[in-house]
Design a protein around this nucleic acid. Sequence first.
DNA 1: TTCCGACTGGGACAATTGACCCACTTCAGC
DNA 2: GCTGAAGTGGGTCAATTGTCCCAGTCGGAA
Lengths: 198, 198
Amino acid sequence: MTRIPAAERRAALIDAALRVVSRNGLAQATTRAIVAEAGMSLASFHYAFDSRDELIDELITTVVSREQQAVLPDLIPGQTLHEILEAGLLRYFEHLRADPEHEQAMLELTQYALRSPDRHPLAAAQYARYTALAAHALELAAKHTGARWRSPVDRVARVLVAFTDGLTLTWLVDRDDDAARAVATAAADALTRMADTR
Amino acid sequence: MTRIPAAERRAALIDAALRVVSRNGLAQATTRAIVAEAGMSLASFHYAFDSRDELIDELITTVVSREQQAVLPDLIPGQTLHEILEAGLLRYFEHLRADPEHEQAMLELTQYALRSPDRHPLAAAQYARYTALAAHALELAAKHTGARWRSPVDRVARVLVAFTDGLTLTWLVDRDDDAARAVATAAADALTRMADTR
DNA sequence: TTCCGACTGGGACAATTGACCCACTTCAGC
DNA sequence: GCTGAAGTGGGTCAATTGTCCCAGTCGGAA
């Protein structure tokens, strides 16, 4: 019997839950499946969390705050805005290809949160976070190329998030790499036209 | 006791299931919930269907084949390609606003199908259908304006589907109408640039 | 060393849910 | 009218699942 403080146990359970959701889907993420993945007993689960709902909520929060700046462009001198944006989108796509199950899990968690009014804020926070990350990347890109966004950068970022989501969802269904790259190019195109370039 | 032939009963159950999924989500679409919505008994359910899975599969098939050309552009002489595409996307958005739960249900059904290998073809068929409808609309638009798609129309259509999905998913989360319209405009922009206009 | 409280294991329970069964009713064809 | 098969109602079963409980065990503070 290994003794672990409750805080670590919560973290371990959340990690295990994310693995189960990624691998088998949210519907299969039962308390028993999570506990088995973490190598604990049910009692430990309910010692660390009051309920499964509490864990899922915390899973969403955790996973959102953990969201990386995975898609930050690397800024090579002489690149045009369009090139930077396209490279950033393609980098995101490689990230998606490397771990499709993770993005699928994020989508499922979003849908889940959308389904109950008191969890809706969790989904909203998730997307606010995406938008903020995108806005930061867009600001860097504009500064680097001396371009200027015609709309508030948050608005442009919101469009970028929509494009990214669409790329993700459609690729998860058909796994058509070329099509996804075409989406990335088209999206970069649209975004570039939302800026005044010098 | 009203007697209904099995075929009609299947149809009625599928309709009821779609209502339940739209209103409460796929997870809540239990046999009992569906049967209650349809006003039948459990026995009638299992007389018409072997299993819940069979009904859900048929629900997906039905709902895909029923998918309307809701977004066909109306072609007003003198319109530019960009105007036609933007109007089409905005029309889709109005369709989404009018019945968000339906699109949310479609998303959930897609995710569900993605989760089991033998149901993956159902999701693929769903998106193939979307792409075909989009391709048809794009051909009409090009013909009407004398434009010519630089890539195969299916490829352009696939990009359009991705943009539409992204618009849908993000709007379902934040319900930001202005942002969705900005996405529509940007998407129309990107698509227009995939054609040679005269 | 003792002891208290944090922590764990295993079992148990109630609710839900998909599936099924059997006795009954209705109707079409004879 | 009679009959057989299609269709129905309601109850039941087994499996799953979230939650809980209780008897114990361990570790650190006194």
